[in-house]
């Protein structure tokens, strides 16, 4: 089943073109990795999927993006609702300057959940699914910024999980982390993919090869930024790429 499908998706920052005719079908409850050299539009594409690009003035998306068959760029889309269904984890861990508990409880509270007992349940459950519960359960009141970066990133994942989205977008979630923290996040992604559709941008080839089910390779050329070159099961993309440029990239010949 395809969770997200795009048709002829183009994107512009003002007059700068950033995505070119992207057609992709992202499968449900799988991990899809986006790889490609810097500036090829991976983040831009990811941010089209929850319309976070809307927050940047003078940007424009053309084409269609379907979530469960519904066009999220149609005028009657409720963007707030969309972002609840499509959560996002950022490159730099960005917990709010508040306690661990309040960070995770943020989403549920925004959704109108105020009962202390229920909040406590949601917080525990979310922290467990982010693999952070055992490390913070003794002190949920501690300042989130006092956690290590890896813990902060897992806290951000817990924060997203707490609103029970359907899709989780991750933009280079491990780039600020050490190898051990990175492996923890990868294990976590694997576990989360049983319930969630995950799209992750990564610069790390091994990570894409190791942790994803599908891989999309993006590239820019002289005229067109942000083209999708190849998309398929990760094993195929890495062992027998169809496109010469994909092969060059994954074997490290450019980019």
């Amino acid at each position: 089943m395809d969770k997200i499908r795009t048709e002829h998706l183009y994107f512009y920052y003002g007059r700068k073109q950033a995505l070119w005719d992207i057609n992709i079908a992202i499968p449900e409850r799988r991990i899809t990795a986006l790889i490609g050299p810097s500036g090829c539009g991976k983040s831009t594409f990811l941010r089209c999927l929850n319309r976070m690009n809307d927050t940047i003035p003078r940007t424009r998306a053309e084409g269609r993006v379907y979530l469960d068959g519904q066009d999220i760029y149609s005028p009657d889309t409720n963007v707030v609702e969309l972002r609840r269904r499509v959560g996002m984890v950022f490159q730099r861990p960005n917990p709010f300057p508040a306690s661990v508990f309040d960070n995770v409880a943020f989403g549920p509270r925004v959704l109108g959940l105020y009962s202390r007992a229920e909040l406590a349940d949601v917080v525990e459950e979310s922290l467990r699914s982010a693999g952070l519960w055992d490390e913070v359960k003794d002190n949920l009141r501690q300042d989130a910024l006092s956690l290590s970066l890896g813990q902060q990133q897992r806290l951000c994942i817990a924060r997203v999980v707490a609103v029970k989205p359907e899709v989780i977008l991750m933009d280079e979630p491990c780039s600020a982390l050490d190898p051990i923290a990175t492996l923890k996040i990868e294990d976590l992604m694997r576990a989360l993919s049983k319930e969630y559709t995950i799209v992750i941008v990564t610069h790390n080839m091994q990570q894409a090869a190791r942790a994803s089910d599908f891989t999309a390779f993006m590239l820019s050329d002289a005229e067109r930024t942000g083209q999708l070159i190849e998309f398929g099961p990760t094993a195929d993309v890495f062992t027998r790429p169809r496109d010469k440029r994909t092969e060059d990239y994954i074997t490290g010949r450019f980019g």
Partner: peptide, 22 residues
Amino acid sequence: PKLYRDAGLAMGATQWQTIWRV
């Protein structure tokens, strides 16, 4: 930082919720 606003908005908070709660 914009990061905090982004986090709020990306969680599905409205603009007002992001302002008052974040």
